[in-house]
Structure formats: C-alpha cells, structure tokens
Simulated scan of single mutants.
Amino acid sequence: MAGTFGSLIVSGVTSLMEIGLAVIIGLMLYALILLGLFVPSATAIVGLAHHWPFAKRFRQIETN
C-alpha cells in the first residue's frame, strides 16, 4: 500500500504528490507509533482483562 501511494510522489502532479506523501506519513505514524507503542502499553495497562471476550471459552477448554 505504501508503495502504491509512494508512486504518486514521483508522478509530477502536485495534488497527487501531496496525497501520496500524506498517506505515507499516516501509514508510518500508524505502524511506528500506534502499533509499536500504543497497543502494547494499552495491553499492559488493562492487564489480563484484554482477553475478556474469550475468557469464558478459555475456561471451558481448560476444565474439559
């Protein structure tokens, strides 16, 4: 996806270059900050409760 939008940067059309650059910057922020820092820290804050929808299923498997 980044490669596709990255090709817009070399197109020479100013509006397409701006769109391609904005999408690439957004993808990099998402990949590096959100996935790299926010998700693990949110999981650490919530603790074991981050599996709450599946807790009943896990308990049933463990007891069988």
Score class of each variant (00 low, 15 high):
17 M>K: 11
15 S>F: 12
46 V>D: 09
13 V>D: 14
36 G>E: 03
22 A>T: 15
48 L>C: 13
23 V>N: 04
55 A>N: 08
6 G>S: 12
11 S>I: 02
33 I>E: 04
41 S>T: 08
49 A>S: 15
60 Q>D: 10
50 H>G: 07
56 K>F: 01
6 G>L: 11
30 Y>L: 08
1 M>G: 11
59 R>V: 13
53 P>A: 05
52 W>N: 00
14 T>R: 10
44 A>Y: 11
21 L>E: 06
41 S>W: 10
38 F>Q: 00
35 L>H: 08
38 F>M: 11
61 I>D: 12
57 R>S: 14
59 R>P: 00
11 S>M: 04
45 I>S: 13
37 L>K: 02
59 R>T: 13
24 I>L: 10
38 F>I: 06
15 S>P: 03
19 I>G: 06
26 G>K: 03
25 I>L: 14
11 S>T: 06
12 G>A: 07
55 A>F: 07
32 L>K: 07
9 I>G: 01
14 T>C: 04
37 L>E: 01
3 G>N: 11
36 G>V: 01
60 Q>Y: 05
32 L>Q: 03
34 L>W: 08
62 E>G: 09
35 L>G: 08
15 S>G: 00
11 S>R: 08
49 A>L: 13
56 K>M: 05
37 L>V: 11
54 F>Q: 09
64 N>E: 15
43 T>F: 05
29 L>D: 02
32 L>M: 07
33 I>Q: 01
54 F>D: 10
55 A>D: 08
30 Y>E: 07
8 L>N: 06
59 R>Y: 09
39 V>M: 10
20 G>R: 11
32 L>F: 06
17 M>D: 09
